[in-house]
Simulated scan of single mutants.
Amino acid sequence: MDGPTSRPARQIIETPTIGDQFAILYPLSRNLDLRLAPFYDPGRARSERFFGLLYGETAGAVEQDLETVAAGPARFRVTRRHGVACQLAVAVADLDLSAAEIAPLFRDVGGSYNWRRIAGTDRLSAHSYGIAVDVNAAIGGYWRWSGATEGAVGTYENKVPWALVEAMERRGFIWGGKWHHFDGMHFEYRPELILYSRLMEGAGQ
């Protein structure tokens, strides 16, 4: 089944349909209150079939389309498929990389392409497809490092400037800081979710 399902959140995360990916609307505002709801994680449900078709089903298939995008001292390896590298480069160009609030984000970055499973799961990371980048982890933060319990993560003390978040969102990247299970260093190319949110906002949903 490719449509949305009504299964428990944990099951949807483990084995999402394509429709499940759109079940939680990604918020385009600066309000982080929505993420207080357990498992409010728009974008964490990823259909491997969907991503494999778009970006490659094996490491070898993904790697043949990788290119490097510079962001100050950082070097991000991402796929050129479907405009990912191009959109990341434009998002970076929109930023003042010398600004005091921006420059530290691109030092000691978490990384980009890495064909791997998400820790503690059998699911491929978004990094496996060359569509995700992690900025400075010390600034972004990650829910597992906080000692929080899954489904009851609580507040997130955001230190990532909105200038970065909004520059990335304009180019089709979602931000893990808006998830209940926050991953504040993490951005991934999900233009389908950004577009869907804009359409729903326009429709008054």
Results as ranks from 00 to 15, higher is better:
residue 173 F to D: 07
residue 78 V to Q: 09
residue 5 T to C: 04
residue 117 R to A: 02
residue 19 G to M: 03
residue 146 S to I: 00
residue 201 E to P: 00
residue 29 S to Q: 03
residue 175 W to C: 11
residue 84 V to K: 10
residue 58 T to N: 06
residue 39 F to G: 06
residue 28 L to P: 04
residue 165 V to I: 10
residue 124 L to M: 09
residue 140 G to W: 05
residue 176 G to P: 07
residue 58 T to V: 11
residue 154 G to E: 09
residue 161 P to R: 11
residue 90 V to R: 15
residue 98 S to F: 02
residue 115 W to Y: 05
residue 153 V to L: 00
residue 34 L to S: 13
residue 159 K to W: 00
residue 42 P to Y: 00
residue 158 N to Y: 03
residue 115 W to V: 01
residue 144 R to N: 12
residue 153 V to I: 15
residue 140 G to M: 03
residue 204 G to A: 14
residue 46 R to W: 03
residue 113 Y to V: 00
residue 190 R to M: 11
residue 170 R to E: 05
residue 195 L to T: 15
residue 133 V to H: 11
residue 170 R to K: 09
residue 124 L to R: 15
residue 71 A to W: 05
residue 90 V to I: 13
residue 93 A to I: 04
residue 175 W to G: 10
residue 191 P to M: 07
residue 61 A to I: 02
residue 135 V to M: 13
residue 104 P to K: 10
residue 38 P to E: 05
residue 163 A to P: 07
residue 154 G to A: 03
residue 180 H to V: 03
residue 106 F to T: 00
residue 177 G to C: 11
residue 179 W to R: 03
residue 84 V to H: 10
residue 31 N to Y: 14
residue 97 L to D: 06
residue 100 A to Y: 03
residue 52 G to Y: 00
residue 29 S to M: 04
residue 157 E to V: 14
residue 63 E to N: 09
residue 183 D to Q: 12
residue 76 F to G: 10
residue 149 T to S: 13
residue 34 L to F: 12
residue 200 M to F: 10
residue 140 G to N: 08
residue 103 A to K: 11
residue 23 A to L: 13
residue 59 A to Y: 06
residue 156 Y to P: 00
residue 86 C to F: 15
residue 84 V to L: 05
residue 50 F to K: 12
residue 143 W to D: 07
residue 78 V to T: 01
residue 49 R to Y: 10
residue 153 V to K: 01
residue 102 I to E: 04
residue 204 G to F: 06
residue 145 W to R: 15
residue 62 V to W: 01
residue 29 S to W: 07
residue 77 R to D: 09
